[in-house]
Computed example of a mutant assay.
Amino acid sequence: MVQTIKSRSPVPLDSRDLDICQQVFDKLRSEYQVAKDSDEAERMASIVIELYRQGVRDPNHLRSMVEAARGLFETSDR
């Protein structure tokens, strides 16, 4: 099922929300070997949070959208 982006939620993220965002960020950062304290990591984290606030809650979909936003597309099966 295709998930559509809703309007940005004004509700603060709770610990479960942040856990999902952190897991997606950590997986992407590790996979693409992005240094934790780099500008790229900061941009990637911002994209993760913004998409999550806009309603992208499925971790796999969130990850795919972050990859697309960064211009990274999977070229092999995982």
Rank of each mutant, 00 (worst) to 15 (best):
L51C: 06
D58F: 01
E31A: 12
Y32K: 09
E40N: 10
Q22E: 12
R63E: 14
V24S: 02
E40S: 13
Q23L: 06
E74C: 05
K27S: 04
R43P: 01
V11M: 13
R57L: 12
D77G: 11
R53E: 04
A69E: 02
E50V: 07
S15C: 01
Y32W: 10
I47L: 12
E31G: 10
R78Q: 07
L18S: 09
D26A: 05
V66R: 12
V48Q: 02
R53H: 04
R29V: 00
E74K: 08
Q54F: 00
S15F: 06
S64P: 00
E42Y: 06
S64N: 02
R16D: 15
M65D: 00
I20Y: 07
D19K: 13
P10A: 10
A69K: 11
H61K: 08
N60K: 10
I5T: 08
Q22R: 15
F73Q: 13
K27I: 04
D17C: 05
P59A: 00
K36V: 10
D39I: 08
F25Q: 05
N60F: 05
A35V: 03
D19F: 11
V66H: 10
E40T: 09
L18R: 15
R8L: 12
D77V: 13
D58N: 15
A69H: 09
E74P: 00
R16T: 12
F73A: 14
D19R: 13
A69T: 04
R70Q: 13
A41E: 07
V48F: 03
K6H: 11
A45I: 01
L72V: 10
E67P: 03
V56E: 12
E42S: 05
Y32F: 07
V24Y: 05
S38A: 08
V11K: 15
D19P: 00
A68D: 06
A41D: 03
A41T: 05
L28R: 04
T75Y: 03
Q33V: 08
T4G: 00
V48I: 07
L62G: 06
V34E: 12
K27F: 09
D17I: 02
E74M: 07
F25C: 00
Y32N: 14
L51R: 09
V66A: 02
I47Y: 09
I47Q: 05
